[in-house]
């Protein structure tokens, strides 16, 4: 069996500041296959962005330290590579787009030149060719009259158009993996719909693996193939998107689904999750979710539940656990009970 496109294995990241250590990521594992969309879903402080930065190799260190784990790209452990070889992967094999396009683009350079710069540096293209390719890329992300807009500065673009510029830049080197960190959070819904549509079309065209980092359960349902739900720096549930929404097997997933209002349902009572996300400097012992969990028992406060395959036996209607990526996994001692309803 060949190695998956991207594999994150037991990743641990700590932030060390004077006097305190914050555990942002505590044993994160997932895999991504070619052409697949994996959504990493989590609230603020769940470690979803930090782990993506570690995969990209753009973590600020210090204060962040990867203390354990591996990030394998087609079997090569990126964390073990010297910085010089690492750079060959960044941007070229794995690219990233951010929530805030305005601060990710250089305000004093024309956008066409910024895209061209990537090609000149990595592909050793001539300036003229690079400019031409930049316009083609802007065309490809559906920026109207790309040729004339290539000479504009980032602040002359609207929020949605800036996001497109950033996507064009990320795609310039035809990466195999695209990490999109909350790409539409700062955008209006009508523009968000445009960008999500664009991303999924581009993914189809280029057969990329797409990691979509978000807190929005709606966006995930629309575009993802598989979901990894994070809580306190760990994956607590991982499943195919339909499986997770239909039969959540972790109380946190269950709670999230019950607490979001839905535009297509009238007068549904919201059942909030009690409490607030944990303080990462003092993650609760045992299952990190147990203080907020309505199903918690004594065992939960002492024993850390492993991420394991949920056996389908509890629910005869459930899809059988398939080998490979689409198995339904949960890190709850009582996963079967939760999935059973």
């Amino acid at each position: 069996m060949s190695a998956p496109l991207l594999e994150v294995d037991d990743l641990h990241i700590e932030f060390r500041t004077r006097g305190s250590t914050v555990s942002a990521v505590n044993g994160l594992s997932y895999t991504l296959d070619e052409g697949e969309t994996l959504a990493i879903l989590g609230e603020s402080g769940s470690g979803k962005s930090v782990s993506a930065q570690a995969v990209m190799g753009i973590l600020d260190s210090p204060p962040a330290h990867v203390t354990k784990g591996a990030v394998r790209f087609r079997g090569t452990d990126l964390l073990g590579l010297p910085e010089k070889r690492r750079r060959a992967y960044r941007g070229a094999r794995i690219a990233m787009i951010f929530q805030d396009a305005l601060s990710a683009l250089n305000p004093v350079h024309r956008v066409g030149d910024q895209i061209a710069e990537m090609l000149i540096v990595h592909r050793k293209m001539s300036r003229g060719d690079a400019r031409k390719s930049a316009v083609e890329l802007m065309d490809r992300v559906r920026i109207p009259s790309a040729a004339s807009r290539a000479g504009d500065f980032p602040h002359q673009f609207s929020g949605g158009m800036r996001q497109r510029v950033m996507i064009a830049m990320a795609l310039a080197l035809e990466p195999d993996v695209l990490i999109a960190d909350e790409p539409t959070t700062a955008l209006d819904v009508t523009v968000q719909a445009q960008i999500m549509k664009l991303l999924s079309e581009l993914q189809d065209e280029m057969a990329m693996g797409l990691i979509l980092i978000t807190h929005d359960l709606g966006v995930v349902a629309d575009v993802a193939d598989r979901i990894a739900l994070m809580y306190a720096g760990r994956v607590v549930e991982e499943a195919g998107v339909r499986d997770l929404y239909a039969r959540p097997a972790h109380p946190y997933a269950e709670g999230l689904l019950a607490s979001v209002p839905r535009i297509d349902v009238r007068g549904r009572a919201l059942t909030p999750i009690k409490g607030a996300p944990p303080n990462l400097a003092a993650i609760p012992a045992g299952c990190p979710f147990h203080p907020r969990c309505p199903r918690a028992r004594d065992r939960c406060s002492t024993e850390v539940p492993e991420l394991r395959v949920v056996s389908a036996g509890a629910d005869p209607g459930a899809a059988p656990a398939v080998a490979g990526g689409s198995a339904h996994r949960s890190a709850c001692h009582y996963a079967e009970e939760v999935a059973g309803g």
Binding site: V189, T190, Q192, A193, M196, K197, D216, L217, G218, V219, V220, A221, D222, A224, V241, R242, Y245, L257, V260, R262, I263, D264
Partner: peptide
């Protein structure tokens, strides 16, 4: 345009 948290209703 509002995404619905239900994969059965796509796009």
């Amino acid at each position: 345009a509002v995404p619905v948290p239900d994969p059965a209703r796509k796009g």
